[in-house]
């Protein structure tokens, strides 16, 4: 084999890696162009689903008023019958992203959990589609004012073994109520 000069050698390394990277990037761009629309549609469908679960008829996204309600507010939707607020209280295992629907009188229309990282079998019940989870979230419907779990003297029965998660969900609901009350 002929001895390669240093320059040619470095050039060969560079060009090979460049080519591999360029081809990979090209392939990715192509795949992305195919899947992009579907992924966006899928995300929109999910949000719409969560929205319509708590706010019948859906709604338009509006600007969030600059009020401190103690819990991060991600999004705010305004519909015909009321508002839907996406709040993100801190639970036991991390942030719980949840959607809370509130009507114009300040009563809760519904609560749904978009994503969470709570303990499986305990806190995760808050987001479950099981009867236990439905029962827990159902308690909030129709409530108004300042809510608390039964351990803190409130009306909400916490999920057994998951007081912290229950408190977090209640905090999120309270924040949503406070925000909507502020909107008038």
């Amino acid at each position: 084999m002929k001895k390669e000069s240093t320059f040619a050698y470095v050039l060969r390394l560079t060009v090979t890696l460049l080519l591999i990277t360029a081809i990979t990037a090209g392939a990715l761009a192509w795949i992305n162009s195919i899947t992009e629309d579907r992924i966006a549609a899928e995300k929109a469908r999910k949000t719409a689903e969560a929205l319509s679960a708590v706010l019948p008829g859906g709604g338009e996204e509006v600007d969030i008023p600059a009020v401190d309600v103690g819990v991060p507010v991600n999004r705010l939707y305004k519909g015909e019958n009321g508002y839907a607020v996406e709040v993100a209280p801190s639970g036991f295992g991390g942030t719980i992203t949840m959607m809370v629907g509130v009507d114009l009188e300040g009563n809760i229309l519904g609560v749904s959990v978009v994503s969470h990282t709570e303990t499986a079998g305990l806190g995760a019940v808050a987001g479950d589609k099981t009867s236990k989870g439905e029962a827990f979230r159902g308690q909030y419907v129709g409530q108004s004012g300042e809510l608390a779990v039964s351990k803190d003297g409130g009306v909400i029965d916490s999920i057994s073994g998951a007081t912290i998660t229950s408190r977090a969900v209640t905090d999120g609901v309270n924040a949503a109520l406070a925000l909507v009350a502020n909107m008038g």
């Binding site: 392939a27 990715l28 795949i31 195919i34 899947t35 992924i39 899928e42």
Partner: peptide, 10 residues
């Protein structure tokens, strides 16, 4: 990344 995108889409 290709597999990830495909899973997200389909």
């Amino acid at each position: 990344t290709i597999v990830d995108l495909c899973l997200q889409a389909f």
